[in-house]
């Protein structure tokens, strides 16, 4: 057996035994690549995910909602940073990853290419989109790569607030005027299907799944996660007196699953390839924010240089420090 094959065998044994892989451990190049791809996409999603909701901060209906939304959007920025940090342990540079995003080479979650048209969207995003993210991230908290798992544990703890503040907004609207109820139903109708697509293509069309499962990067398949989300969410929708925009939806007594009609995967691929309602707008907003922040980055560098120069002149340094 070649050296590489032996290493691979040991690696797989460690994975099977439930051990975590740490940054300095040997890992197959493909494992590293797959993780960089997944984790950086995840980081980008957190960052781009600030945009649809950030859009509503100034229009939140009262101070309580505004504080909650500000804190949530700030959390998303933090989650992006946890994930860039964890991705850097794989030997990539976060500035390169950010550049890939800004230049349109990197992907992020499709869901953020849809617009937030009304205040109800903010509630439904917290409830559906963060709810779906929790399902996915609870699984990833047990992923085989140590730094990713640790970042996920931190993130999961914080997401619970996101979901509840979203549901609270929806409960308020559901108990409100007929117009508020219509607004909520409309938001549910628009977000339901794109949220289900967040779990990725069906298992028989998911090229990376088998490998990721074997390496325990993922512990469940896309369809398993999607079904779990549907099962917990449908009763929450019904509890508000709202409906799911799916005429084929039915409860299956035998399996205890809520079964859905077909998902429009053409739409999914269309949006991934850049033809969603907001793809261009999101990247434009990211680039603008990055460009407008250039002076801050320059100032920080200038300050660091100045400090270094000062440190090189001991007398001046003493009087300053």
């Amino acid at each position: 057996m070649g050296n590489e094959a032996k290493l691979l065998e040991t690696f797989q044994k460690r994975i099977n035994a439930g051990e975590k892989i740490e940054p300095r451990d040997w890992m197959p190049e493909r494992y590293r690549r797959q993780l960089i791809r997944m984790m950086s996409q995840h980081a980008h999603s957190e960052i781009v995910g600030m945009l649809p909701e950030g859009n509503w901060i100034t229009r939140a209906p009262n101070l309580r909602r505004k504080m909650a939304l500000l804190a949530k959007v700030q959390d998303e920025a933090g989650h992006g940073l946890y994930l860039y940090s964890a991705t850097e342990t794989l030997g990539v540079d976060r500035y390169q990853l950010i550049q890939d995003l800004l230049e349109g080479r990197a992907k992020y979650s499709n869901i953020f290419n849809y617009p937030t048209l009304t205040w109800a969207d903010v509630g439904v995003i917290g409830w559906f989109v963060d709810g779906a993210a929790i399902v996915n991230q609870t699984m990833l908290a047990k992923t085989s790569y140590g730094p990713y798992a640790r970042a996920m544990i931190r993130i999961c703890k914080e997401e619970a607030f996101h979901k509840r503040q979203g549901y609270e907004i929806c409960v308020t609207l559901a108990r409100g005027t007929p117009e508020q109820r219509r607004m909520l139903q409309d938001a549910i109708n628009r977000w339901w299907w794109p949220t289900l697509m967040m779990f990725g293509p069906p298992d028989d069309q998911s090229p990376n799944s088998a490998e990721l499962l074997r390496w325990k990067v993922k512990r469940k398949t896309n369809d398993e996660l999607r079904q779990h989300f549907i099962n917990i969410t449908v009763p929450q929708v019904l509890a508000l007196g709202m409906t799911i925009p799916d005429p084929e939806l039915r409860y299956d007594e035998k399996t205890g699953n809520w079964l859905i009609g077909p998902i429009d995967w053409d739409e999914f691929w269309r949006v991934i390839r850049g033809h969603g309602p907001c793809n261009r707008e999101r990247l434009r907003a990211r680039r603008k924010a990055h460009e407008e922040g250039a002076w801050v980055r320059e100032a920080v560098q200038a300050y660091a240089r100045k400090r270094q120069q000062r440190a090189a002149q001991p007398v001046a340094a003493i009087s300053q420090e």
């Binding site: 940073l81 850097e88 640790r150 931190r154 400090r307």
Partner: peptide, 12 residues
């Protein structure tokens, strides 16, 4: 240990 940050100097 919780992760890392990028910064030009210690206070930042």
């Amino acid at each position: 240990h919780v992760g890392s940050v990028r910064a030009s100097h210690a206070e930042m």
